[in-house]
Amino acid sequence: MARLSVSNVSKSFGDVPVLIDQSLEVADGEFVALLGPSGCGKSTLLQIINGLTSVDSGRVVLDGQDVTGKSGSGRGMVFQGADLFPWRSAIENVAFGLEVMGVGKAERLSRAREYLHLVGLKGFEDAWPHQLSGGMQQRVGIARAFCVRPKLLLMDEPFGALDVQTRDILQDELVRIWEAERKMVLFVTHGIEEALYLADRILVFSKRPARVLKEIVVPFDRPRRETMKLAPEFLELRREISELLRHDITA
């Protein structure tokens, strides 16, 4: 059983403490949203879990293996602005992780093609990133992270730069893809509705230095449908979280 365990992580940038003694656990196949105001430190936590940022203290353990400060191995990251390599075609972008791992060309391209199709970009294999719309670029970004078959998918406000319609579509797509290949997901967002719609569990973070204000187990069944965003229970939870965050920011 795959599982992520983050224990007692602290991080400061210079004199500014960003995270103080934070811990979290993610169970196999669980979709967890990290929700909080912009700049609170939740992205830093994600980067620490990804191994891109070092910790001052604490440990990140994935499947019993200490991966603190080490990137790669079992984790795939989707970045906010997609951040595709402009000199690589869509399929070559998706195959990037496999190329780094030393997988042969024929195999990595065939696997990349499979994931490009999964995200609905059949026929765009040879397109350059600048020829794709923002939403399509992020589909490639998602395929790139899935293509290394990570146990843990890390998503840093992946839909933050997209317009509302595209975001709604991609949220549904993400759920569809994730249900096809169930893995642990940590999804950083400042969108309350997004977190409620996508996640099994939400960790609501305070303003900086980030700490968990509240843990919410989302009570809605899967598969989730667009219409649930208007259900009274959904709206009530949304209002509750919104108040929690507002109270913290003005406190």
Binding site: S71, F79, D83, F96
Partner: peptide, 14 residues
């Protein structure tokens, strides 16, 4: 050279 893209490569353990 974009530090973001270098970060992407790093996240794939390059």
């Amino acid at each position: 050279v974009s530090p973001k893209l270098l970060n992407v490569a790093r996240s794939f353990a390059a």
